[in-house]
Nucleic acid binder design. Structure first.
Lengths: 239, 239
DNA sequence: CGAAGCATTGAAGTGCGTCAACAATCGTGG
DNA sequence: CCACGATTGTTGACGCACTTCAATGCTTCG
């Protein structure tokens, strides 16, 4: 059930059988949510975090006038709001981009796991710090990259992250986001997101249709994006 | 010496005498660095983190063409790279905006402190999660706010953060950043940053000269910024 | 006193936004 | 199975916020 999460962890650190039991013991129950449903609302009190088992989620923030910015996307194996363990209330919404299933992880279980297995505590601290690293890369995108470079960069990031949980093939992956949702990740209008995708197609870098992204020229896409996967910290860590 | 840091912590949680000793024991030495010097370089291996005692630092990332984005500013009391404790190598530079003094905190000391005082471990985990929250707010700024709103928002954020360590007065604070550095925080060109500051002045919201920011109309500045301090998590926490 | 960095200004350009219409696709119910 | 409305994708015309380039004064400091 939490297989993608364990798969992701095991690429970073070795997990003993005992630790695996502790991790599996974190989950109290699961919950299914529909596309567009809010899983967490900004400001609400939390006593559990959500581990994504199936589907895609997004963290998003709104301005009072209604403009929406997605600050991170989540794919299976990700914790959508592990930082809620220490923050208790979170500064953003978590919404479902597709119909999804999440595992509910009560905070008191994380706490006792971290006290029993300090190394696992550091592993989960590490995961929230990788979230921070992704946020910084997105800030770099939003502040300095052009629309086409931002779009390319997002496609590259998702490719690496999905590959890490076995959800990408060599040439692409299933992409359930609409152009509106992509535009909310990239700080663009829908219209310009559309033109940007067309330009990526025209340059022969990608194909995107019927919920599937095909990367035709990975080298070229990385070039446009100025992409370097180091900020994802996918390789083995000593924690 | 680490007074601003303890002052900041004590607004969040109560610190016992024993815990205070542990915190003071984190510091192995101090280091002074000149303005514009790099304290940490993206990708280098770290075995210590840096607690800022005096001065201002910035986390910044560059594109290969040279465009620079500052992803966070640091004021006294902040850890500039506490996330390096778990990441080991960091995805950004840390550079000095002014002449500064930092305390060197070896990672093995953080580790043993977190194992001896699990609650302090959570407090420091919390601090890195607040960094994440600030990153998300900056992403919202960069993606959705106009230039003037972004600038106003940054001034508001710094006011609250400096007040928390006793470095702001009721009407403003010392602002050592040049317009170029401000523009790097906000994803603007220097020229437009200049025009944006002038517009804030013209509206009677701020004064800015000789390294001092005076907030003439806090209500008005918050309005332009669409500012809500909740994302800074400055109030008391139960950790 | 001169050089270097910083702030300011003007003029012109452009990447992306806005508005509006239409086409394609999808989900749903009859 | 088709009809229907709703959502999503696409296109064109036009506008504007911000950029670019270039020049000038202002400050600081050796």
């Amino acid at each position: 059930m939490i297989t993608p999460h364990l798969k992701k962890l095991r690429q970073i650190v070795t997990i003993s059988a005992e630790e695996e039991r502790a991790i599996r013991g974190l989950v109290s129950s699961t919950r299914r949510i529909e596309a567009d449903e809010l899983l967490v609302t900004a400001g609400e009190d939390l006593n559990a975090s959500h581990l994504l088992l199936h589907g895609w989620l997004a963290r998003s923030k709104d301005l009072s006038e209604g403009e929406c910015q997605v600050t991170q996307l989540h794919v299976p194996g990700d914790f959508a709001d592990l930082h809620g363990f220490t923050l208790k209330r979170v500064d953003h919404d978590v919404k479902a981009m597709t119909e999804s299933t999440v595992a509910i992880v009560p905070h008191d279980r994380i706490r006792s796991m971290a006290e029993t297995f300090p190394r696992l505590g550091r592993v989960y601290w590490f995961l929230t710090n990788v979230d921070g690293s992704m946020h910084r890369e997105w800030a770099l995108s939003l502040g300095q990259r052009s629309a086409i470079s931002r779009m390319a960069h997002l496609f590259c990031e998702l490719f690496f992250r999905l590959k890490a949980v076995g959800k990408a093939s060599e040439d692409g992956y299933d992409m359930p986001l609409t152009q509106r949702e992509l535009s909310e990740c990239l700080g663009l209008t829908v219209v310009h997101a559309n033109r940007t995708i067309q330009e990526l197609r025209r340059r022969g870098l990608i194909e995107l249709e019927k919920g599937r992204l095909t990367i035709l020229d990975r080298r070229g896409l990385h070039g446009v994006a100025d992409f370097d996967a180091a900020y994802l910290y996918l390789e083995r860590q000593d924690l």
